[in-house]
Structure formats: C-alpha cells, structure tokens
Amino acid sequence: MATLPPHRHVQGQPPTRPAGLRRVVHRLLTLVAAVAVGAGMLAVPAHAAPSPEEIEAAIDKQWEQLEPTIEQYNKVRAQLKVNRKKSAELQKKIEPLALQSELAMNRVGDLASRYYMTGPSQDIAALLVSTKPGTLAEQLTMLDRLAAQQRKDVEGVLQVRRRYDGEKKKLDALIAAQAKQEKDLAAKKKQINAEIKRLQASMPKTTVKVAGCPTINGVVSTAAQTAIRVACQQVGDPYVWGATGPNSFDCSGLTQYAYKAAGIYLTHHTGDQWNEGRAIPRSEARPGDLVFFYSDLHHVGLYLGSDRMVHAPRTGKPVQVTSIDYMPVAGFRRPY
C-alpha cells in the first residue's frame, strides 16, 4: 500500500493537526473567551459615587425631619428656665409662711404645756373663782373664744402654707419631668449630630464664599434695622443647634439674638416666636419680619425683602442669605 503524503485528509477519518497548531488554536480560544467575559463585565452598570449636590439634598431631606426635634429641645429648655424661676419665687414666699406657722404652733404648744405642767395661770384662776352671778359662764365663753381665735390664726397660716406647698410640689414635679425630657433630647441630639457628621464625611472639601446681606430699601423700623444689621453680621457663623450666639446659632437662636440687640426679647423656640409676633400677610411683609416654614413652624428666618432672608439653615451650613421659596412658607410675624 502506498504511503499517503503528509497532512492529506483521508475521507471517513478526522483530519489531523500538528501539535504546535493545536496549541495556537487553544490559546486563541482562551483569549476569545477572556475577552467575552470581560465584555460581559463591562456591560454591568457601575454605581457612581453620589455627587456633592446629591449628598446635600440627602442631608437637607433628613434635616427637614430632624429640625422639629431640635425646636422641641429649645421649647423644653425655655419652659424649664421659666418654671425654675417660678419655683424660686415660690420658695421665697413659702419661707416666711413657714416661719409664721412655726411661731404660731410654738405659741399653742407653750399654752398647752403651761396648762399641763402648772395648771391655769393666776389670771385665769381669778376669773374662775369670781362670785359675781353669771360671771363663770361669761369667763368660760371668753376662754373658748380666745382658744378658737388662736386656732383660727394658726389654721389661716397653715392654709396659705399648704397652698404654696402644693403649687411648689407641682412645679417641682414639672421641672423634674422636663429635666428628664431635656436629658432624653440631649441624647437624641448626640445621635442626630453623629448622623449628620457621617453624611458630611463623604462631602468633598470645598471653599464657599457667602455673600453678605443685600441693600435694604423701603419702610424699615428702627428695631428692624438693628435686628437686620446684627443678623447680617453673623453671616458665615456656624450652625450649632441649641446655640444663641454670639459665635454660633440655630434658627430661632439667630432671630432671638438679632432682636435682643434691638431691645425685644423672643423665646428661643420657633413656636413661641410665632405667638410673640402679630400676623402679617405675605403681601405686606417687610424687612425685619420673621418668616416661618413648614406646618409645624420648625424653622424661622429674618426677612430681608424681595423674597430673601438671612437664617441659620442647619448643621454643616453657616448663617447665610437665601431665597425664602426653597422651603414651604407658613407665614410672617412682626415682633415689634
């Protein structure tokens, strides 16, 4: 049988390849498979890191939920200050009453002791041995009236003292409850700040220039001029919730600080500040009015006119001038 020439295909038998060619084909197939796998991986959408704007929006959204708690904290602290003052005033009133009560009780005790140890005094004995007709009954009636008057005097003092003791007891209970609430809110404040700090940690470091207040035109009272000037001087100061100045503020702390310079005292709580001013329709709002936001009034700013205000926004954002329309306006109040 004749020998076939090399590399010729015999019908009915699989073709043969040299070992070197087989290795090249194997490598090529391996490379193609790797490229295919890589192409598949590239087709999976990548999750990009959030932009600074997205992070700011997330913080703003969370702050909208956190700020009511902050203002509740301010409300409790303001009420606590008022009630502690009331308690101290009551204590001053109770002290002389307590002394009067003690002296009255001492007099009664001395009388009782004297009767017990020595019997009636000579004056009383003289009255009792009188021989005048009807005198004994009159004398006994007199003694009974004297004792009744003594009891009445003592009881009058004790009634007043009990009334003040009762009022003070209620105040002390209220102060204890509010102190506990303040402690609970302080713990929540710590949690809030930790969460805000966590969100801000992912923010790229940037430098932001904050513009000062614009020129104010129109009818502006002397008190409003002072409040605007003082508030604008704080532009760039950091937001610290619970702070009332002079170097850091929260929203109601800034408005309180600004109007305090004008001789007008506002409570460090947005809800109270709403009630401490008179209602002004938006069409009549003028620079110096307080502008409130959200249905629960948990944010406030100092209106500058032309739909702008100076306010302390939130943790991470300093005191600044912004439009009033980026939050839902609840109304305007004039505190003077």
Rank of each mutant, 00 (worst) to 15 (best):
S283I: 09
V300N: 10
A279P: 10
W63S: 10
E182N: 14
K170W: 00
Q100S: 09
R151V: 15
Q256N: 03
A201H: 14
T141S: 15
A173M: 02
K183Y: 12
S323H: 13
A98D: 12
N193A: 11
E71W: 02
G316E: 05
K85C: 03
P318K: 08
K81C: 02
P204L: 04
T215H: 12
T135M: 03
Y115A: 13
I70A: 01
V76S: 04
T131Q: 14
R286L: 15
E71G: 08
T135G: 01
E71T: 09
M203H: 03
Q200L: 12
I216K: 03
A34I: 10
A258C: 08
L128A: 08
A39K: 00
T207G: 02
F293P: 12
V208Q: 03
K180V: 06
I59K: 10
G156A: 15
Q181I: 00
Q178R: 08
I228R: 00
A137W: 05
H47Y: 06
A223I: 15
A33L: 14
A186I: 02
R84Q: 04
P5H: 06
L304H: 07
L297N: 04
R27C: 09
V300K: 08
T206L: 09
T135Q: 04
R8S: 14
I59C: 15
G277E: 11
V10R: 08
G212K: 05
T244M: 10
A19Q: 07
A187L: 07
E138N: 13
E67M: 05
V210M: 12
V291Q: 06
I216Y: 07
S101T: 06
D325E: 11
S113I: 03
L290G: 08
